[in-house]
């Protein structure tokens, strides 16, 4: 009895430690984005400006340039990380992340269509993006359904749908009167370059709503990880939980995509990285969200200041994620697991 209690306590301790560390990392990166840029602003000055003081020069830098970027990066990262890991848990496959099976592409295509063709803006774009993301999720499920949703078939169908949506984005962009590289980068790999403070509010609301919903379902998700049959035996309504979780996940991913574009591989990478850090000690939801935020903030910082030339964040995360994706395929194939 004491042994069980002891091991449970030590697992809880490890989980708490991991979450604390990841939170610290995200906060540090957020602060770094605020105070480091083309010029260094002491953290004290940053705080004073944020509290409402007016320091010449600094006020503009913080409120107009760095805060929108940092805030949007933080929120989008949290959304991508949480939304991605939810899909990976639900489908029990790391490749089933929304950026590989086409859901992010659906949201991105809808957003770019609204902005370029219908010249809409604001929350309406997010609403359409969410609807498109849900539609793509449904489409992929229906198309891959055949005596149940097979894992590999689901992913391959998703890849096919993603290829088509990517072409659709390229098509819409080519009809745009002024086709700029900046726009293309945003909608094809994700970028924080056009971040505005107003974009963060709807994202924060959606993140709070959907994220809260997902966290309350954390226990059910843990059970679903062990398989549908086990979960059903444990008294969980599998279909209902799945529908709620997918809707919430798509909601977050699509809203974030409407703001920043589909930042490459963040949704795909966060879950596995968090799993490495947390180990077997508990829920992956919060750690993945924090890993996502750290990835986006770090990628953006690297892309802006540490490389020769300026890259949008999606290019950096894409270059980091690509080798990992290949490694993952090699490992899964070698272990003989059915993907």
């Amino acid at each position: 009895m004491t042994l069980v209690r002891e091991s449970r306590r030590s697992r809880a301790r490890r989980h708490g430690l991991a979450v604390a560390l990841l939170t610290a990392m995200a906060v540090i990166l957020f602060a770094l984005t605020l105070s480091l840029g083309q010029s260094f602003t002491p953290p004290v000055d940053v705080l004073r400006v944020l509290l409402g003081e007016d320091l010449p020069g600094v006020t503009f830098t913080i409120w107009q340039l760095r805060l929108p970027r940092a805030l949007l990066g933080l929120l989008a990262g949290l959304s991508f990380g949480l939304g991605g890991v939810v899909f990976q848990i639900l489908l029990r496959n790391p490749l089933a992340s929304p950026d590989i099976i086409g859901i992010s592409w659906g949201a991105s295509a809808a957003a770019v269509f609204c902005i370029v063709v219908l010249s809409l803006s604001g929350p309406l774009v997010s609403v359409v993006a969410v609807a498109a993301g849900l539609a793509v999720a449904l489409l992929v499920t229906v198309l891959s359904f055949r005596n149940g949703v097979g894992g590999t078939r689901f992913i391959l169908v998703g890849i096919g749908v993603a290829a088509m949506l990517e072409s659709a984005i390229a098509y819409v962009l080519s009809t745009a009167p002024s086709w700029t590289l900046q726009d293309a980068m945003r909608w094809l790999t994700g970028s924080l370059n056009s971040a505005q403070l107003a974009q963060s509010l709807p994202l924060a609301l959606v993140l709070a709503g959907c994220g809260g919903l997902l966290l309350t379902r954390g226990r059910d998700l843990e059970a679903l990880r062990m398989g549908d049959d086990v979960a059903a035996a444990l008294g969980i309504r599998v279909a209902g939980t799945r529908a709620i979780v997918i809707s919430a996940g798509v909601g977050m991913i699509a809203t974030a995509t409407a703001a920043t574009g589909p930042i490459a591989f963040v949704a795909f990478l966060s879950g596995p990285i968090a799993a490495r850090i947390v180990g077997n000690s508990g829920s992956l939801l919060i750690p993945s969200a924090l890993v996502g935020a750290s990835l986006v903030l770090l990628g953006d910082y690297i892309g802006q200041f540490l490389l020769p030339g300026r890259y949008p964040v999606g290019v950096v995360t894409g270059a980091l994620g690509a080798p990992y994706l290949i490694y993952l395929i090699i490992r899964t194939n070698r272990s003989g697991g059915s993907l």
């Binding site: 591989f265 290019v315 894409g318 270059a319 994620g321 690509a322 080798p323 290949i326 395929i329």
Partner: peptide, 12 residues
């Protein structure tokens, strides 16, 4: 998967 990965490296 290789196509997706390479395409992101091409951009980079």
């Amino acid at each position: 998967a290789t196509t997706v990965a390479f395409s992101s490296l091409v951009i980079a």
